[in-house]
Write a protein that binds this DNA or RNA. Structure first.
Lengths: 244, 244
DNA sequence: AACTGTTTCTGACAATTTGTCAGAAAATCC
DNA sequence: GGATTTTCTGACAAATTGTCAGAAACAGTT
């Protein structure tokens, strides 16, 4: 049941190759960097063949996003299931998010492109559902850790603020920060020498603002996070170019 | 010296009309919604005439972004020069930022498009400089208020954290939040019923985390912000569709 | 009003690029 | 080895961007 005919296998392999090539092209030149003619040539097939795999160019890009989001969700899941107090597990998810954008900057960039370009109309409902589902899962994983923190009396949210609203804050800050970093060609010019460190510290202070114990004044989260990246994400850590 | 010939005046007026029409088209269909053929037709001129105003399509879009950023900078400037303690002035800038995205969602969306699409290569250095300059000014305005807070001993930043790094945190959170709101078609489904309120509260908690007095537990910033929007931005307030 | 040099406008043209589809080629089955 | 199904190709249509030589409109002068 799992063995495919050689032909079917070749087709399946090609789909992966299409996505790999497409990602590189989108990374280099955005939406317009992805030319189906050029893609087909690089792949050694005709353009028609590509349309056997994907209904249109937009579907290829959305497929890239699904890959990206699944990858992030898996890393989040790994981080959230770590041992430790909720606030450290939340820090672990932060580590995962940072590792993700630093190791796969091209993934993040493709996500950005999809966000703003109006490509959604042309895509299939099926694939859009996949994107939405990944998003919900990511929020759910983080909200779960927040609920653990509440259950263990490490934090108590003010009246009317749901765990999801706090997740929204964390999500917003990381999303916005990575987006600014990715699009601004000189962070130093803006007066921000080490943006990744700056964002980690801002996140700590946000959680401190909610009174989530242990506070960052009581616990050295910078060290914790460095340990997490070494222990929980060893292979990813090894592939980092810049030091943590 | 300031009176133009009727013809020159007409040309200048047309440039504004091009931008107005272009913004509407980009808003509706993103980068591809802006077709120069259709734009020319709506304007009652030929496509060649449009190329007399702008070197290429990308220049039009970047011109839209310059309009947007100038508008925001002016609102920030107005908010920052308000009377009051620094933390309230910072809240006023928050009000300005929120007002801006709520009153001019199309402006924000055009900014998003420019961010991810790779249109920068084709644009002129001159206009890119304008964008960069607006960005620096916005950061500078906010950082100035942060410095005021430090000078008045209302807050003291931890070792190694510059005012710009704190601004980066505020900027990231608002930017990310608005981006998520703009692209996610159902915030409610994610468990966030009132995203704008959620983000205001997250910002308050972030500043609380830095120990910036008055803390949000000591001062009712929600009321302050409502008062600011009424007093300092009366015309903008009147144009809000949804209640504050 | 007529003449003249300049500015502005037009629309046909070339160059790209996306998506389609009838027929060719290849693979699979019996 | 022949029949049937699947897959692939490349020519075609349609849309869109940017160019430019010539047409039209304008402004200044006599």
């Amino acid at each position: 049941m799992s063995t495919l005919t050689p032909k079917k296998q070749a087709i399946q392999d090609r789909e992966q190759k299409i996505l790999e090539l497409a990602r590189r092209m989108v990374l280099e030149g955005g939406y317009h960097g992805l030319g189906l003619d050029s893609l087909a040539e690089k792949l050694g097939v005709s353009r028609g063949t590509i349309y056997n795999h994907f209904q249109c160019k937009e579907e290829i890009i959305l497929a890239l996003v699904v890959e990206t989001m699944s990858k992030r969700r898996d890393m989040f899941q790994r981080a959230a299931s770590m041992h430790g107090v909720p606030r450290v597990r939340l820090a672990a998810i932060g580590v995962a998010a940072e590792l993700f954008v630093r190791l796969y900057p091209d993934h993040f960039r493709v996500e950005q492109i999809v966000k703003s370009d109006s490509i959604w109309d042309k895509t299939t409902e099926e694939r859009r559902m996949l994107v939405r589902s990944c998003q919900l899962q990511c929020v759910g994983i983080v909200a779960g850790v927040v609920r653990d923190g509440i259950a263990q009396n490490h934090v108590s949210l003010p009246e009317g603020l749901t765990p999801e609203a706090l997740v929204f804050g964390l999500w917003s800050m990381t999303e916005g920060a990575y987006s600014i970093i990715a699009t601004s060609d000189s962070m130093a010019e803006l007066g921000i020498a080490e943006p990744f460190q700056a964002i980690r510290r801002n996140i700590h202070h946000l959680l401190d603002g909610f009174g989530w114990t242990p506070l960052s004044t009581e616990h050295d989260f910078e060290s914790s996070m460095e340990q997490i990246v070494r222990d929980e994400f060893p292979s990813e850590f090894a592939r980092l170019k810049q030091p943590w």
